[in-house]
Design a protein around this nucleic acid. Structure first.
Lengths: 415, 415
DNA sequence: GACGTTTGTCGGCGAAGATGACAAACTGAC
DNA sequence: GTCAGTTTGTCATCTTCGCCGACAAACGTC
């Protein structure tokens, strides 16, 4: 019956392709690799229990993964239980690597992440305003990638390259439609970066808030939770919606722009051209302005504001209270839309969480339907500012995890 | 390679169960039955082309479905093309039936729908306010079901029973959490109806707006479209969100309550306890009130209002213009959240579509991000008031379509 | 009526997982 | 230290399922 439910989720609607026998192999290899990637090393017998497959099947499957150098097996550490010890299968971290890139407003980051989600090397550099142009960005990324690659195991394979960008990203062609904070507009960023890097592995580009959500659902506070609302706020406010454990991308990948939901018809004009967007009430600018600071103050001003709040300065506390109210209003609406079981606040909103949490909860209780909000918890991000970077790595792993051997064939031949 | 993408969508995230050989059979049977259910009769060679399976596989699979009396094969009508004609496989409509029930505010409907989506019998009765209680509703449904069943083919199987209710429905236990318009609160409606019907087939309960969305995506204007925002408005406003062809249900099935997104913090109180919900601006009551009518006027008042609009009466046109503006504001926000490729207006909102369409589009252009709204069309529902009923039938078919033979075994033995 | 074309059918093949017997490896008690 | 008990890996065999290729059937055309 569990097989039935798998099938159900699997080959759901619309005319899909027929399933061949080989698909079974590929799917089972994928399941095992996913298990190891997300939950760490596991003994063969654990794998048997979790997948419902037989010992022989697991043996053959793990063997194949070992042969492909995706998995290594070690003798079990004897844990005191009776019976023959089961060898532990672990992902081969150092030789199966993705490159993650985060193009943020005022910084650039590159990381090499090994299978299993281990960060092997990471670099983040602040960058001045004049290095924000597309060409300069690509040059800087290439230089950082070269440095990071130099430190990697010489025998390692680059499985994929994931890139997060502060802006609207078209997932169908990896282009950046618009990135107001960078001044980019209709840039074929994925293709250009791929070319500049010498096209070794596929470059996949996505919105950084979406990636932060992905990271948080895969490895952060929301690990294992199937319906999650992730709210990422810095200068702008974005979000990632996760339903049934899968990110909602929308038709072209633009879904999750929750910062531009109209919440206040009499509100301020938004840089998107509309009026009263949620972002104009809960973004960094609004918070700073309400506390009497310049909305352009940036990170330093936020730090000062939070320090004031800790010290009990009324203007800071008031600004945070107003922020909390609008935050709660917007989240309540999204809870009604999505019925998540967890709301995660990331970026700046993760930092203000301790100051606003009570009032946000109160506002949710006032405005979200009792049924929809039952059991919802609002928590701060666990991964902090590196969430988009970690999400980019996961994005790049996705292909390998879906079809391990098939992907590997392509990766190996492409070098 | 298409096999890869299937796999990807299929066994995607989180530790799923291992896949056995039999899963393949079950999945392929499901694919063929889905194809016939949604796209109507198809020749064997068409099935070969669409699934990518071989002639022998299709032959065996169709044969098995024929043996199970789910599919019948007829000699092809010779269409003038050379070559041996391919027999046409068609769903066996009359012998594989679901019962669909719609519990609306002022009416009750029951239908028998055959495989392929053919309505075999349908009944809808208006009902007075005093028959709204749970027990009376169940009695009425049972009586209607008996009448409908009497007209069915004696050899037919009841695959499942789908029920749509105007209210918040917990999908995990088929209970109605709250249905303000019916005065229901925490009713184990699914279980009680199942018991009253003598528990022949499984009863599945869902929100009527969600079901309307399902129907519209399966067989209505949105057929084949993968990302759809369905907005259902009558007295209240609900919605169905469809992402990648699958309805978004949320953690407990409450997702889609888009009527309670806060859009106007200074607005009127909503019956949900909040203030300025979208529903208070675009629901039937608001429309009627703005035109100078009683908000309780119901269907007759709406008819009169639309007649006035046709005649060019200013108060009616003004009321519709305000309605259009708020409609556009809300839809724009949801477009930013979901990035759908189609927006469908159902119920009352489907009726007002011709009057508000231009202004809604204008408001969307003003408020939704250019990328997110690119290519979005706003269309009225194709199925009208029967959409929830049709959706209920589809809900009941879902299990059969996911695992044809397995479901049939349970259904047959349960009689 | 012969020919070309398209399609169903059937037997054989290979891949994948299940099954069950047996061996291996570890714990713990005497 | 040995032996029973337990758990697990391995191997040979079986079943299921789809693919492949050969052949026959059914149709249109000339």
């Amino acid at each position: 019956m569990s097989a039935v439910s798998t099938t159900r989720a699997a080959f759901s609607s619309t005319p899909s392709t027929g399933v061949r026998s080989e698909t079974v192999r590929s799917a089972n290899l994928a399941i095992i690799l996913r298990e190891l990637h997300f939950h760490g090393p596991a003994s063969r017998s654990e794998l048997v229990a979790r997948t419902g497959l037989t010992r022989s099947a697991i043996g053959a499957l793990v063997g194949e993964l070992v042969k492909a150098d995706l998995v290594s097996e070690q003798r079990a550490a004897s844990d005191g239980s009776p019976g023959r010890p089961s060898p532990v299968a672990a992902p081969v971290v150092e030789r199966n690597v993705t490159l993650a890139v985060d193009v943020a407003v005022d910084s650039l980051a590159v990381a090499a992440v090994g299978l299993g989600g281990v960060v092997l090397h990471a670099e983040r550099v602040d960058r001045p305003r004049e290095r924000v142009a597309v060409d300069a960005t690509i040059d800087d990324i290439v230089a950082m990638v070269r440095r990071v690659e130099a430190a990697l195991d010489p025998g390692c394979r680059i499985i994929g390259i994931g890139v997060g960008v502060v802006g609207l990203v078209n997932r169908t062609d990896n282009s950046v439609s618009i990135a107001p904070n960078l001044g980019w507009h209709d840039v074929a960023f994925g293709a250009r970066l791929q070319h500049a890097l010498g096209s070794r592995a596929d470059v996949l580009v996505s919105n950084d808030a979406d990636l932060a959500a992905l990271a948080e659902v895969r490895r952060g506070v929301a690990a294992g939770i199937r319906d999650v609302l992730y709210v990422w706020g810095e200068v702008g406010v974005g979000g990632g919606l996760v339903s049934r454990g899968e990110p909602i991308t929308g038709a072209a990948g633009f879904a999750g722009e929750i910062g531009h939901v109209p919440v206040n018809p009499d509100g301020r004009p938004c840089r998107c051209g509309s009026v009263g967007c949620w972002e104009t009430e809960v973004g960094e600018g609004a918070l700073l302005e309400r506390s009497g600071r310049s909305p352009e103050g940036g990170r330093d001003a936020v730090d000062a504001l939070l320090a004031d709040a800790d010290a009990g300065v009324p203007s800071a506390l008031d600004a945070l209270a107003v922020q909390a109210r609008w935050l709660g209003i917007g989240i309540a609406g999204l809870i009604n839309v999505m019925n998540p079981s967890m709301v995660v606040l990331g970026g700046l909103l993760g930092r203000v969480h301790p100051y606003v949490s009570d009032q946000v909860t109160a506002e949710i209780e006032r405005r979200a339907l009792e049924s929809s909000r039952r059991g919802v918890v609002v928590v701060p991000s666990a991964l902090g500012g590196d969430a988009p970077l970690m999400g980019a790595a996961e994005l790049a792993f996705e292909r390998l995890l879906a079809d391990p051997l098939g992907t590997l064939r392509k990766v190996s031949t492409s070098r």
